[in-house]
């Protein structure tokens, strides 16, 4: 999903930067508030960022015969909500742009928009929706992470198709081309990311029950009862 340095025309690069900036600024505010009000969550925040670091460094072979990597943004979005993930994702993308020549500074805005904004929000949205339908926690976590991963690559395909419409078949033709490179390759990787996120969440349920309850991922008995009775009253 990394659009390489200089590979978006200046107007597009600037537009995506402008679109991403408010999300990141808002995210920094949420992050500082979270750390100030709940200093004990700093460790878990670090772990969520670390998960993104590991997963976005894992280049895995896929069914299309090319390699790509997961994003690791679903976990942090589910735990701390998407605004905070916007910051953690941006840090990861900056590291890769500056040290690995992977992605770039001119394309940072576009890459942040796909991986640190749309991915986390889409994954979080699916997670919340499934939770409302009483789907078991680990199933919601799987689909949250799966959607966060796959939607990121769909956005990258759209971004490239907007910048480089096919001379013959236009935007849609280009979208098909970039989509077949990114989105199709990503499907099995998104499954992998879903499974890895479930493993980490299972470990968290065992080790950090109190923290997960405070973050609303695990419901206390009274909260479950309240939700049930609320549902009945409605």
């Amino acid at each position: 999903m990394h659009i390489a340095e200089g590979f978006l025309p200046p107007a597009h690069a600037i537009a995506w930067g402008v679109a991403s900036a408010p999300f990141v600024v808002h995210g920094v505010r949420s992050l500082t508030r979270e750390v100030r009000e709940h200093p004990e969550s700093t460790l878990l925040l670090g772990a969520s960022g670390a998960f993104t670091f590991v997963l976005s460094a894992l280049k895995l072979p896929s069914v299309t015969g090319s390699c790509s990597h997961p994003t690791g943004t679903g976990l942090g979005a589910i735990l701390f909500r998407p605004p905070i993930m916007a910051v953690l994702g941006t840090i990861t993308l900056l590291f890769q742009a500056l040290l690995l020549a992977h992605g770039g500074l001119t394309t940072l805005g576009a890459n942040v928009f796909s991986m640190a904004i749309v991915g986390p929000w889409a994954g979080y949205g699916v997670y919340r929706l499934l939770r409302r339908w009483d789907v078991p926690l680990m199933v919601t976590v799987f689909f949250g992470a799966f959607v966060a991963d796959l939607s990121t690559y769909c956005v990258t395909s759209v971004q490239l198709a907007l910048a480089f419409p096919d001379p013959g078949s236009g935007f849609l033709g280009a979208l098909g081309k970039f989509g077949s490179i990114f989105a199709v390759t990503q499907i099995p990787l998104a499954v992998s990311e879903g499974l890895l996120t479930v493993i980490v969440m299972r470990l968290l349920v065992q080790s950090s029950r109190g923290e997960l309850t405070r973050l609303g991922v695990l419901l206390t008995k009274s909260a479950t009862a309240a939700a049930k009775s609320g549902a009945v009253a409605r």
């Binding site: 999903m1 990394h2 659009i3 390489a4 590979f7 280049k59 072979p61 015969g65 090319s66 390699c67 790509s68 992977h102 990258t156 490239l160 480089f164 419409p165 096919d166 001379p167 280009a174 081309k177 970039f178 490179i181 990114f182 390759t185 990503q186």
Partner: peptide
């Protein structure tokens, strides 16, 4: 075989 998708996208851009 098994080149990075990011690099393949760069190739696609130069094709278009």
């Amino acid at each position: 075989p098994f080149a990075g998708a990011d690099a393949e996208a760069e190739t696609a851009i130069t094709e278009i």
